[in-house]
Design a protein around this nucleic acid. Structure first.
Lengths: 133, 133
DNA sequence: ATCTCATGTCAGGAAATCTAACATGGTTTT
DNA sequence: AAAACCATGTTAGATTTCCTGACATGAGAT
């Protein structure tokens, strides 16, 4: 994991700040956590602490909800996207040509298995980090 | 003010987070505020909220204290530095040659007026923003 | 007409922070 | 050496923020 990623995953923000930054209510944020769309860290005293990555993700959730995707759909999307990034990374360190096809197939199979009608999602990069230079 | 500066001056962090980030106690942070070395924003409920700039400044204060500079000295240093930046900015938008000398004189006069023995300060750029890409 | 889903709202409790005051151990100053 | 000063520790009581859990609600799906 790069230094940059470490920094972006550092839990820094209390829920109040995140509410302002994302324009979501506490209820919404907790609800998304309940449905495992985010997993903010906790302080010793059990308060949520959010990272930049968490905040990006919340913005993405907001976007997808606006587009009519429901919790389950968003969850699937995130899983697929994560797999995709994981594979892209692996691919970066190996040869491209045939792995690509394998991976594509895997991806498609995955989508088909679990109600695979999610692909018209935006895949927009929520990006709160523009808040920092 | 550039967008970047706006972002860096956005009040986001509660004192607990700042304590961890700077390795200062709450007492220390409040004491520095009492002496007007920082002016964190406040929530509606009067809780302090710190910006990246505040945090940078706290790290700088820590450095200077380690080097034996006291509150008053740090305060002077910050004033001089601010004047310097202000002038540098003004200078950027105007001609350089003769203004530079005028400004230098101003700076020196300022230093001489108020116990001008502060110049061996580090002028180190405290930089918490390395925490963000 | 009922059910589900995302969200609002409220209550009671716990954690984090606030201010103010007094304590303390090094440095200066007298 | 005694007194004063400075940066920080510590404690107390009050206030704010956040927590979980429960119930309420309105728009869509069934």
């Amino acid at each position: 994991m790069s230094g940059k990623e470490i920094r972006r995953s550092m839990p820094l923000f209390p829920i109040g700040t995140v509410m302002q930054l994302t324009d979501l209510t506490a209820r919404q944020i907790r609800y998304y956590e309940e449905h495992q769309l985010i997993s903010p860290a906790r302080t010793e005293g059990n308060r949520r602490l959010f990272s930049l990555i968490d905040i990006d993700r919340l913005l993405e959730i907001k976007d997808l909800l606006d587009q009519g995707v429901n919790m389950a759909g968003i969850k699937q999307l995130f899983m697929v996207k994560e797999q995709l990034t994981t594979m892209t990374e692996k691919q970066t360190e190996k040869a491209k040509p045939d792995l690509t096809n394998e991976q594509l197939r895997k991806l498609l199979r995955n989508e088909l298995l679990h109600s695979g009608r999610l692909n018209r999602s935006s895949l927009r990069q929520g990006d709160i980090s523009r808040f920092f230079h």
